[in-house]
């Protein structure tokens, strides 16, 4: 039976899709069979981030409308053979798709995969409930900004109405230099304010955003090491947190921090 994890946030633009794609890649890299489902109907981007936008023949809406079988809509990643993507509809077919429809598709995939990662749309309206309905675990993506944390708090309170097996936070776009200078709310404080444990910390990393524009993934940058730790934590239930300040400690680190500040 697959673990069904929804990646949600409330606020848009915090990196749900990027984290969904990267977590999927790391889990597939660990040898697990993973499928990424884009439930962001009408505003789908998972196919672009994964670099498979030209391979889309059928999508989630086609499966639900019985225009094709679920296996026909799945796209196998050429770099990671155990990673599959189920893209979402380009058109706004959202109103006709219910949470139960999505759950039926998820149930069809259940026995063939170890992980089903569901990319949730922003907001807390019908699209959110459609995505959360079929999941049994949730990762709430948050950035260290007040608006994002406030929305995450609201999402966590809605998620508590669902009988989810576990809920955790992933703090994205953390800047080690700002943490050290006291200009950014710390990860520990975010966890304390939201009353939920941290599953992963992802640093602000130019390479991650650059490569995501190309639909590619690196296995060596700071961001990717953080994604590997996230995948490890998700799989093993550990709480190893990536230290974003490491790069800015010591003599060279302080120098790097000062140069960055001036630039």
């Amino acid at each position: 039976m697959a673990r069904k994890i929804v990646l949600t946030s409330g606020k848009g633009g915090v990196g749900k899709t990027t984290i969904c794609a990267n977590l999927g890649v790391r889990l597939a890299n660990l040898g697990f069979r993973v499928v990424l489902i884009d439930v962001d109907i009408g505003l789908n981007n998972l196919d672009v981030v994964m670099g498979v936008e030209n391979k889309v023949l059928f999508d989630l809406a086609d499966v639900i409308k019985a225009k094709c079988r679920v296996k026909q809509a799945l796209i196998q990643d050429s770099r990671y053979p155990s990673l599959y993507i189920l893209p979402s509809a380009h058109t706004d077919a959202g109103e006709r798709i219910s949470g139960e429809n999505v759950k039926n598709v998820v149930d069809l995939l259940d026995s063939n995969f170890d992980y089903i990662l569901i990319d949730c749309p922003a907001g807390v309206d019908a699209g959110f409930h459609r995505a959360v309905f079929s999941a049994n675990e949730a990762l709430v993506i948050v950035t260290p900004h007040i608006s994002s944390i406030r929305d995450a708090d609201k999402v966590l309170s809605i998620l508590s109405s669902y009988n989810l097996f576990s809920t955790g936070i992933v703090v994205n776009r953390v800047r080690g230099d700002l943490l050290l200078s006291g200009d950014m709310i710390s990860v520990e404080k975010i966890s304390e304010l939201l009353g939920t444990s941290i599953v992963g910390v992802i640093p602000e990393d130019d390479e991650v955003s650059t490569l995501s524009s190309l639909g590619a993934f690196s296995l060596n940058s700071a961001g990717t090491r953080a994604f590997s730790l996230l995948a490890e934590n998700v799989h093993n239930g550990t709480k190893k947190v990536y230290d974003c300040t490491l790069k800015y400690r010591g003599f060279i680190g302080t120098l790097r921090r000062n140069i960055k500040k001036r630039v």
Binding site: I146, I149, R150, D153, K154, S157, L179, S181, G182, D183, M184, I185, S186, K189, L193
Partner: peptide, 23 residues
């Protein structure tokens, strides 16, 4: 006080205000 401290205090107030409206 650092900017992070001030931000945290402000956020605490916002979250409490949000929670007060619910019950």
């Amino acid at each position: 006080f650092t900017i992070a401290d001030m931000g945290s205090k402000r956020l605490e107030k916002v979250l409490i205000k949000d929670k007060t409206e619910e019950p």
